[in-house]
Nucleic acid binder design. Structure first.
Lengths: 335, 335
DNA sequence: CCAGCCTGTGTAACCGGTTACAGGAAAGCG
DNA sequence: CGCTTTCCTGTAACCGGTTACACAGGCTGG
């Protein structure tokens, strides 16, 4: 029925004790007479009493919830990270409050503010915000762990080793004899995109000296990968490899190449970044990022800080690993 | 620094008014003198005041959060549903509190109880719980919408039209001339799995009379699809089509067939269920379920109930659609 | 026999908001 | 000018828990 749930006072009345005793009994305090505890437990059981988490957290100043701010739930990149968080949060007895924040910086600030008093800490993924915007948006009192965001603002954070991943990709392609390597970059302003792009230039200088780097800007979504191929063809560019800044765009690139009748990896080799689950199925050579693990570690670090120690403002860099699959196979046609 | 956030009383002091006026001014009540409102807003701004959502929801008895209970965040099935929810929840000004509940029924009840006082309503996906277990686990006072769960316990719910989907798949295969159709089922106890399995039997009776149906039980994960193929081979079964109860298992089936050197769709045609994003990339014929839309509609219905009307205990059935792709192509080799 | 301690319990303040109700000041009206 | 009405504001109770502090009663020890 629509009857209101029992409160602690109802239980107290039913058990003929004070609310203090009910609270102590149910929270396992030691200074409660066994007989009293039994009466309280029986009364709570009889009334189907469940403590009101909101009231509890107001009084304790702990909600046992952590907020997750992320730009997009689309695609496997963030899903995987959230999955890792969920796993860890479950193990630690916390809850996850999701909030996805669309690109705009003031909306981002808005999203974070709306979490005050709802969560004990924040995990923020905001690759599209610059350092100043991020700093302004973060509420002052709340512990936060940044993931994939501009750091250097004195906050705990995790960063992917973007440079090493791209450099490994380019080196791998160079080892296969490819030199005319194109980069399909992520959106300007995105920190990961920028680092990957810079690494591409550095790697080209090292492995393909004398060859002009070509960068086409995409937006991390699949379609922009296909668009990039179309653009390359309309430019009459010659290329024998494409390094995409993430897997989704690499998939678009593959589609674009297939539609253009260009053989992969025979004519053009392709690499991605992230190693989302899809990549394995499609045989895409890519840079593995332990996404779920990053999520779990971010939660772990935050919860540790909430429970005991303090949050050191270090940036932890997460190693990546090149995973070679069919799209850069040595002999063409080997999928 | 670590200084505590400003409370409404701090703002009141700063603006030299009472807390009541601060509350009224900030919440857009009309009966506040413009001059007072300005002073309050200025003070709030100066102190960086952000209302404490927990306190607010305690007093209003509304948290503007809705809890989502789901069995697993792994795979694209639930990710897609959550994505749809997130979209809708954002539009409606609510938050999403995730909680994934592992198979056990008492843990499920535990998970739901822990949400009392934290959320205004619940969306529950519990295909593995039977009606009694579900009814016992659901807290009494909280409005809830069931998705993909046993219904018939007088709760608002959404169900996928499993029967129609499987029947369409079998009919499609029969139209291609396949008769020896095997079903790789989901885990026993799962309501979707059972309905799909029953529909398979009915469809076989209709489209392949005289042919003994073969069912291999899987667990909805990829590996069990591959295992099913191995089992079929060890049984020396003859078959020319496999209807998997979901896409992940269909992917496993494809892998198993490839490893066994059996041509798809030449020798064996394969269908899945759900149309997760992966299916499109791999050319898997499958039954499309509008996952994101289901999530969004579940949220919509719940929020409508929370804000105004009541929650009618109807079960809404969501239509599916057969999507034909390469794994059941007419001529073999056409991917 | 009484001071002092220990155990178990109750009273009431508090967490940070919202809001019913009361009341003061200014304005309208006869 | 006195009275009602209107507008604005403040006081305090409340949401449902937790817990500092007070205290009653039974023991122990001198």
């Amino acid at each position: 029925m629509g009857q209101a749930s029992a409160t602690i006072r109802d239980v107290a009345r039913e058990a003929s004790v004070s609310v203090a005793s009910v609270s102590r009994a149910l929270n396992g305090h030691s200074s409660v007479h066994p007989e009293t505890r039994a009466r309280v437990v029986a009364a709570a059981e009889a009334l189907g009493y469940v403590p009101h988490a909101g009231a509890r957290s107001l009084s304790l100043a702990r909600s046992h919830a952590i907020g997750v701010i992320l730009p997009d739930l689309h695609g496997e990149f963030f899903s995987e990270i959230v999955r890792g968080m969920d796993r860890e949060v479950n193990a630690r007895g916390y809850h996850l409050l999701l909030s996805n924040m669309h690109a705009d910086a003031s909306l981002a600030a808005q999203a974070m503010r709306s979490m005050r008093g709802r969560v004990d800490g924040l995990i923020v993924m905001a690759p599209q915000l610059d350092a100043a915007g991020l700093d302004a948006a973060l509420p002052k009192g709340v512990p936060a762990v940044l993931v994939n965001s501009h750091d250097g603002i004195g906050r705990a954070s995790f960063r992917i080793d973007n440079g090493a991943g791209i450099i490994a990709s380019v080196a791998h392609l160079a080892a296969l004899g490819r030199r005319r390597i194109v980069h399909v970059a992520g959106p300007a302003g995105n920190i990961d995109a920028r680092e990957r792009s810079e690494a591409y230039h550095a790697a080209m200088a090292a492995h393909a000296p004398g060859i002009a780097p070509i960068v086409i800007e995409g937006d991390f979504h699949e379609q922009s990968g296909a668009d990039a191929v179309a653009m390359l063809r309309s430019m009459d560019a010659t290329f024998d490899a494409i390094v995409a800044a993430n897997d989704m765009m690499a998939l678009g690139v593959l589609r674009g190449l297939r539609e253009a009748g260009m053989d992969v990896p025979g004519t053009v080799a392709v690499t991605g970044f992230d190693d989302i689950p899809l990549a394995r199925y499609l045989g895409l050579t890519t840079v593995r990022v332990p996404l779920a693990e990053i999520g779990a570690r971010a939660v772990g670090r935050l919860v540790d800080a909430l429970e005991g120690g303090d949050l050191s403002p270090d940036t932890l860099t997460v190693a990546t690993e090149l995973v070679v699959r069919g799209t850069t196979a040595l002999s063409p046609g080997t999928p």
